[in-house]
Structure formats: structure tokens, C-alpha cells
């Protein structure tokens, strides 16, 4: 029921997902360090962001480069509300809702454009719209703080000044707020892709021509899928704003984040939704821990000339790239696609 009748299928995969979710569920107690908690929070947020993207790319077959724009709308919504009107829960809710509403409206407009343009041309339009949003965020200094972004106070309950006893504080509240909202959103998306509407989205991916011949108005469904994905991405952005207490163009709108989302979906497995969980975990862990791990290895090989150069921590992106190429090569359907029993 909770999984919408779409369990992971496959023993290894179920174990892997159960481990990730279980560790995330108790992360603050397993890893008390601030950095580890930030990693866990980022994983939870990225899961929602990439799962919503998977609904577009993997389920509906829509290639969009504007997903970070919707992520940014949620983040800026909360950031602007908190900056302008002070640190209260009402502001958080209003900011998140306003960002989400804007995301839905913009997604609907962009979605309607797909009536005229298809596939690669649609992707180009989303790229243009996303660039435009990025420029707006950088130039509307009064509202967005420009390139510097916005730094703001969050409600006191979410800060370390809020004591919980046992050495725990508001950071724990922040974590569980993020974890809970992310879990609810993921389960919601899982429900959507397994609903009658979700089947239509798959039908559009498989054979849009046939879907139309069945009497399905594909434009309507594509637009609806875009709006739902945008709303979820926007809420993920709001969570990020609360986590970082900061929002800027690089944190939410950057093209490199868009590439990360694409990589996560492809590595995790397109059209599975569970791929977002596996992919976001691997990606975030690699980004946070590959560089230090390589530093350790480089020291261990300090006597060996070539090894030291190859393992230099500054070359971590090289290894990350190789890791991704290996995954895509050996698991063309993604990790989840590979592990899933048909």
C-alpha cells in the first residue's frame, strides 16, 4: 500500500534500498557529526529532486534541462520569505507554497509549448528558459541577492539554539523535517507513476502516436506530469533552503547540478524511481568522500611516483568520471534496472 504496489523486486536491490532508508532514518544517531548529517540531508533532498526528474525522463520520456529551475523556485521562495518577513514557520510555509505555485505555473506553460515542439527542440527550449531563470536570479539583486545569494535565519526550532536534551538540538528537528517531507514526497511520486495516469505516461514514452490513437490527449498528460514534477522539485528546493539557511544561483540553479541529476537518474536506472535512491546516495557519497579517500590512498602510496600522481585528491573528478562510465557501461539500464527481476 505504502509502496503503491510497486515493490523494488529483487533481493539484493531490496536489501540495498532497505539499508539506505534505514541508515537515513537513524542517521543523526549513527553519525553525530555535522558534516555527516549534512550528507544525509543532501541525499534525502536529492532523492526527491531526481525521483521527480525520473518521472519526466524515465517514465514519460521528456528531456528537460529546466528541473533545477523549479528546484531554485522552491529554495528562493523560502529564502525570500524568510529574508523579508523574518524567521517564522508561517513564512516557511508561505514561501514554499509560493515557490511551488510559481513552479507549477511555469511548468504548465513550458509543457504547453511541447504541443508545438518535440524531443530535442523541447529540450533546447527548457535550456533557454532555465538560463533565463539563472540570469534573473543573478540580476534581480534586491530580491535574490544576486550572485551572492541570500543568507537568512530559520525558525528557532530548526537551529542549534533549540535544546532538546541528551545533547541533541534543533539540527535534529531540521533533519527529521527534511527526512519526513522527502519520504512523503517520494512515496507520493511512487504513487503517481503507478496510478492510471502513470501508465499513460509510460504509454507516451513507449509510443506517443499510438497513445493518441487510443484517444489519450498526450499534451494534457505531459503537462500534468511536468507540473507534478516541478512541484516536487520545488519542495525539495525549499528543504535545501532550510538545510543550508542559504540560497544562491550555484546551490540551486547551476547547470552542473542539472548534470548531476541526469547522471543520478541514468546511473540509478531510468523509469524505476527507486533508482533515485541508489543514484543519489552513490553520487553524494562520492562527492563528499571520494576526495578525502583518495587523499588517504595517495599518502599510502607516497613512495610510488606514478600512483601518487594518479591518486592525487585533486584528481577525484577523474575517478568519479571513470566510475560513472563503468556503471553506465556495465549497467546500461542503471543499477536498479540491472538488479530488478522482471
Amino acid at each position: 500500500m505504502l509502496l503503491s504496489g510497486d515493490p523494488p523486486r529483487g533481493r539484493i536491490l531490496s536489501a540495498m534500498l532497505a539499508t539506505i532508508v534505514a541508515v537515513l532514518a537513524v542517521a543523526p544517531f549513527l553519525f553525530p557529526s555535522t558534516r555527516a548529517l549534512a550528507v544525509a540531508e543532501r541525499i534525502a533532498i536529492l532523492i526527491v529532486l531526481t525521483a521527480s526528474y525520473d518521472m519526466l525522463l524515465g517514465y514519460t520520456g521528456i528531456v528537460s534541462f529546466a528541473h533545477t529551475m523549479f528546484f531554485g523556485m522552491g529554495a528562493y521562495g523560502v529564502a525570500i520569505a524568510l529574508t523579508r518577513f523574518g524567521a517564522g514557520w508561517g513564512q516557511v510555509v508561505i514561501g514554499a507554497l509560493a515557490g511551488m505555485l510559481l513552479a507549477i505555473v511555469v511548468a504548465a506553460i513550458v509543457g504547453l509549448l511541447s504541443l508545438r515542439v518535440r524531443a530535442i527542440f523541447f529540450a533546447m527550449i527548457t535550456l533557454a528558459v532555465a538560463s533565463f531563470a539563472q540570469i534573473l536570479a543573478s540580476t534581480m539583486r534586491d530580491w535574490t541577492g544576486g550572485e551572492d545569494g541570500l543568507t537568512f535565519e530559520v525558525p528557532k526550532t530548526l537551529t542549534s539554539a533549540f535544546r532538546l536534551g541528551g545533547g541533541y538540538n534543533g539540527n535534529l528537528v531540521t533533519y527529521y523535517l527534511i527526512f519526513t517531507v522527502a519520504a512523503v514526497l517520494f512515496l507520493f511520486l511512487l504513487r503517481v507513476v503507478n496510478s492510471p495516469m502513470g501508465r499513460v505516461l509510460q504509454a507516451i514514452r513507449e509510443n506517443e502516436f499510438r497513445a493518441e490513437a487510443l484517444g489519450l490527449r498526450t499534451l494534457w498528460y505531459r503537462t500534468l506530469a511536468g507540473a507534478i514534477a516541478a512541484a516536487a522539485a520545488s519542495l525539495a528546493g525549499s528543504l535545501l533552503a532550510l538545510q543550508l539557511r542559504y540560497t544562491g544561483p550555484d546551490a540551486t540553479l547551476s547547470f552542473s547540478l542539472m548534470v548531476d541529476i541526469l547522471l543520478i537518474v541514468v546511473i540509478g536506472g531510468m523509469g524505476t524511481l527507486y533508482g533515485a535512491i541508489v543514484g543519489a546516495t552513490i553520487m553524494t557519497m562520492a562527492q563528499y568522500y571520494l576526495q578525502p579517500a583518495m587523499g588517504g590512498l595517495a599518502n599510502a602510496f607516497s613512495g610510488v611516483p606514478l600512483m601518487q600522481a594518479v591518486l592525487d585528491p585533486d584528481r577525484w573528478l577523474l575517478w568519479l568520471g571513470l566510475l560513472f562510465i563503468a556503471i553506465v557501461y556495465f549497467f546500461p539500464t542503471g543499477i536498479v534496472g540491472r538488479l530488478r527481476t522482471p
Binding site: R191, P196, R199, A203, E206, A211, L214, Y221, I228
Partner: peptide, 28 residues
């Protein structure tokens, strides 16, 4: 719809007849 099951192929046709689906919260 090549990678959907035989049953889902037929079910989509029934679903299409039921009109515009705002139904994204029940399980297919």
C-alpha cells in the same frame, strides 16, 4: 506499447475511454 505488458496495453485503451485522467492518486 512494447515494454508494457499485454494486459496494460489493453487496459490503457479502457482507461482512455474513461476520459481525461486526473487520477494520479489511486493505484493502477
Amino acid at each position: 506499447f512494447p515494454s508494457l505488458t499485454v494486459l496494460e496495453n489493453v487496459r490503457l485503451a479502457f482507461q482512455a475511454r474513461l476520459g481525461p485522467g486526473l487520477d494520479f492518486l489511486t493505484m493502477a
